[in-house]
């Protein structure tokens, strides 16, 4: 099963990262599509984005290379970061030079890391926004389960539609009252629900 050249061998031994990233990505994707809880969807989203980050970082792997920060002997400011116990400062005293191609192999590719820094920040921003949306939805509907949410939205829509058709334009007030009543009803319902279920919000 693990002979040279088979796909399984390639994936599991030589390219484990690529295999793992696919698995992570699928977990995330499945959570985003199939889970009913909005917070679970967001967890899936985070996993999804992390998988992509893993993929990009895997591109940057280069055998026998170090992190993309110049070693003391290539440092543009010469002696800048030489340990003090060696007395060879003068040896490192040079201006910036263009590294030749054999030395280039010694450093990892910085570009994927930079790209992923950007992707991480974008992921954090999206997550923050999505959490705010969840709170807003919870305030409005008292639930963050998708099916309950849809049912509630639908019942409210029917209610407002029938109201707006029957009531002439200058008598809008009863509709608002009705909505308020409905809101308080939904809140109280969610309270009874949340007593049996642990609340999804983080709490001290």
């Amino acid at each position: 099963m693990f002979e040279d050249g088979t796909i399984i061998n390639e994936l599991l031994i030589e390219r484990l990262n690529y295999f793992i990233y696919v698995v992570l990505l699928l977990i995330g994707l499945h959570a985003m599509i199939a889970k009913k809880n909005l917070i679970k969807k967001l967890i899936g989203m985070s996993i999804f984005q992390t998988a992509i980050i893993l993929f990009y970082v895997s591109i940057g792997v280069k055998e026998g290379s170090t992190i993309p920060v110049y070693l003391p002997e290539h440092d543009p400011h010469g002696s800048h970061s030489v340990p003090s116990d060696t007395n060879e400062t003068s040896h490192f005293d040079h201006g910036p030079v263009i590294l030749d191609s054999s030395l280039v192999k010694g450093y990892a590719n910085p570009l994927p890391h930079v790209l992923m820094l950007t992707a991480i920040v974008v992921g954090v921003a999206t997550l923050g926004l999505a959490l705010a949306l969840c709170q807003r939805i919870y305030q409005g509907y008292g639930t963050i389960e998708e099916d309950e949410l849809l049912a509630k939205m639908e019942s409210r829509e029917i209610r407002s539609k029938t109201l707006s058709v029957q009531i002439p334009k200058d008598q809008k007030l009863p509709k608002k009252d009705e909505l308020k009543k409905e809101k308080s009803r939904s809140v109280s319902k969610s309270k009874t629900l949340s007593a049996s279920k642990p609340k999804p919000k983080g709490k001290k």
């Binding site: 110049y70 440092d75 543009p76 400011h77 910036p96 030079v97 263009i98 590294l99 450093y107």
Partner: peptide, 15 residues
């Protein structure tokens, strides 16, 4: 990026 960062910008950290 690896070879010329030092010459172009004098920054040791390429990232």
């Amino acid at each position: 990026f690896i070879a010329n960062t030092g010459v172009d910008t004098e920054v040791p950290n390429m990232v």
